[in-house]
Amino acid sequence: MKSSYNSHVKRIILGLVIFAVVGFIGKEISSPKSFGVYGHYRADAIQEEADRDMRHKTNTPCLPCHTHEAGLHKNGLHKTISCEFCHGPMADHITSGIKTGELPVKKGEEIRVLCLRCHNRAIHARPGDVIKTVVMPDHLRDKKVKETHTCNQCHHVHAPYNYIDQAKQALSIKEAS
């Protein structure tokens, strides 16, 4: 093939133009559709994030089935506590209205660890107007119970003063009569 003095340059330029055009078309085809509606991002990503499944579903859906706990919980001092914090997220328990798993119920030493996350006075920075705290095991000694006692042997976990108030009431009635 006979080549003129600039045929290689022409071919290079042609090649670069084809490369650029193909690249541009490829870019237009593969760019996501909703890109740039609000800004330099895919606008659909907002709705996708909004549609993410909720795993925690507040206390409301728990109460209709767990009526006994519900009764205690809503009248007790722990009424602001989330069921799901101690027991785990609703999504691990009920899916599409059907029970799919058991949520754990803390027992024994676990209860003590759980209660002291909030109520341990040894951790300073727990203001009295926010939370009532105790020092262990001094609290057990004060109340004249065994040091092996777990918290829930005196305090009902869902309504901490429930038994204590009842006991006090019973005692005062006795005293009066």
Binding site: M1, S3, S4, Y5, N6, S7, H8, V9, R11, I12
Partner: peptide, 15 residues
């Protein structure tokens, strides 16, 4: 790699 061009004329080399 030569884009099928064998032209090495002075004109081409100057370009």
């Amino acid at each position: 790699l030569t884009f099928d061009s064998t032209n090495l004329s002075p004109e081409s080399l100057e370009l």
